[in-house]
Design a binder for these strands. Sequence first.
DNA 1: ACTTTTCCCTAATATGCTTCGGCACGAAAG
DNA 2: CTTTCGTGCCGAAGCATATTAGGGAAAAGT
Lengths: 189, 189
Amino acid sequence: MDRNTNGIRRRSTASVGVDAVDRKLLGFLAEDATLSYAELGRRMNLSPPAVHERVKRLKETGVIRRTVAVLDPDLVGKPLLAIVHVDTQGWGKTPAMMRLAELPEVEEIHAVTGDTCLILKVRTAGPAALEDLLAHIYAVPGVRGTRSYIALRTHLERGTAAAIGLDGRDPVTVPMPAQESAASAGLTE
Amino acid sequence: MDRNTNGIRRRSTASVGVDAVDRKLLGFLAEDATLSYAELGRRMNLSPPAVHERVKRLKETGVIRRTVAVLDPDLVGKPLLAIVHVDTQGWGKTPAMMRLAELPEVEEIHAVTGDTCLILKVRTAGPAALEDLLAHIYAVPGVRGTRSYIALRTHLERGTAAAIGLDGRDPVTVPMPAQESAASAGLTE
DNA sequence: ACTTTTCCCTAATATGCTTCGGCACGAAAG
DNA sequence: CTTTCGTGCCGAAGCATATTAGGGAAAAGT
């Protein structure tokens, strides 16, 4: 219901109305949602009520989906991160996916293009737990095979935040250096 | 009903210590960090100050890394999600990685085992923007090639939250991960 | 048995959120 | 050019909430 079931948005590209001030605000909130409205107002030359009004609107329109606490995977007992490619029979759809989504260790499930069908992001207590998890995955009907990539180190992990113009960077349009030469050089598959 | 208030299990070792109550609390906060201490206390039969005390400790010990607003990728102009495998020359190390981390569209960078070196999670405004981004990636010294998996649909995307015993599910056999410098052992932003 | 530590509670204070009415600016209509 | 309407902001007030302080009960350690 809250979904944009209309399908087509009237406004230009993405926008239920997100102006530059909103983007800056979102940038701050996506990095630290505990900032007070007073502090936010100070940072962008606005009064607390004005900030409150914008945040309220952004939540209602769904731009801000929710506010969550980010936990340290190591400290909560899930030090092992793995990306798992899953090959399925046919185009999986939901029955199998639902099963996978029920596993607590599975954080993300994406249906993708390429030489695999599903990409999972999972966190387990260790290699043994990962093996158990893979056993569960294989037990799901329709699963033909998996290919796991174990993360040795995470160099970066942030929200959609940075994509916004937090630090004044232009958001939507990437700088782009030499798009034609480099792009056509060798990425076509 | 009031049994929870007393007889809490002793904290195993002098480590960072995350007991059952903490895990339940973390489960709630990882799903909605805007819940008031009163509400949290009500849900787990604790007084607001008691909850406050625990949350404060969890933040200080680094279990709760930060609190952030989760944005809708579509509504902020980044509807295209892609997983990009990057092959590098030698074992990349940081100079190249630093360059990649500077790109706003890049959300995650993991060094992994398997038939590739790095796995990136990126969000762009569209196919063209992804091409531009790939051009940037190829421009980084040491990058030999990439393989992109475009997400057609995201079936699940949640935090580490679910891995905790929020809904009473037994996480796996875990806890008691680190013993001493666990807080500093984690990824330092 | 006694001490210490841990964890919680009630009560009180302070801080920040949230609402309300009014004003200024810009756009569309007359 | 003037009027009207809509939007977005501000300052002040009321109120919910976070936060601190003091004290007590139970378990762990001596």
